[in-house]
């Protein structure tokens, strides 16, 4: 059963477990590849994770002169192949969300690969495995569909991804609380 990463952004409590877990994935060489941002640090403690969304038409891969960024058959957009990346940094400029990281010393780009050696066998990626607040989940399309029914919005605002994103993505993003107008105590 194909599962995908699904984010309910405002559940995030800012614990950064996902960043820590990311460093521990095989092949990540103890560096994390994602981000956790404050939403309005002067006012409240709300945070949101920012992950690679594994675009269906990934700008990073399209801009790479070396074809170093491969797209896996699961749809995951992989990190640069170590022997192919020529260090031009086009991908970092192209990504609409500023995801790929670049190591100048190693002349190598690295980015989220959705823990491909886990997810290709339907094991959740590290971040979703550890997230304690259900911000990052690993769900089938059917389960995502059920969530949609559960948040029965009459304002037509259930949207995963578009229009908050630039294009179709394999990772689905949602903001159920904010869209329903539920006020949270942060």
């Amino acid at each position: 059963m194909k599962k995908r990463l699904y984010l309910e952004l405002e559940n995030c409590i800012g614990c950064r477990s996902c960043l820590a877990a990311c460093t521990q994935c095989g092949g990540h060489e103890e560096r994390n590849r994602n981000y956790v941002y404050d939403v309005n640090p002067m006012v409240n403690r709300q945070t949101m994770p920012l992950m690679c969304l594994h675009c269906v038409n990934p700008a990073c891969a399209r801009s790479c002169p070396a074809q170093a960024i491969q797209i896996h058959e699961t749809g995951a957009v992989l990190s640069a192949l170590v022997e192919k990346c020529i260090g031009c940094q086009n991908c970092t400029i192209a990504c609409p969300y500023g995801i790929p990281k670049f190591d100048t010393e190693q002349n190598l780009m690295y980015k989220c690969d959705l823990c491909i050696d886990r997810t290709k066998d339907s094991i959740p990626p590290m971040c979703a495995s550890v997230c304690p607040s259900n911000t990052l989940q690993w769900l089938t399309d059917e389960e995502i569909e059920n969530k949609k029914k559960q948040f029965n919005l009459d304002n037509g605002k259930w949207v995963t991804s578009i229009p908050y994103l630039e294009g179709e993505t394999n990772v689905k993003v949602n903001l159920p609380g904010i869209l329903q107008g539920i006020t949270k105590l942060f």
Binding site: C22, T23, Y37, V39, N40
Partner: peptide, 21 residues
């Protein structure tokens, strides 16, 4: 875009991104 609050215009430094495993 997600939150509706223009954090990019706020002059605060990026939150800690260096959680170690």
């Amino acid at each position: 875009q997600f939150s509706g609050f223009p954090i990019h215009e706020l002059k605060v430094k990026e939150a800690n991104q260096n959680a170690k495993g």
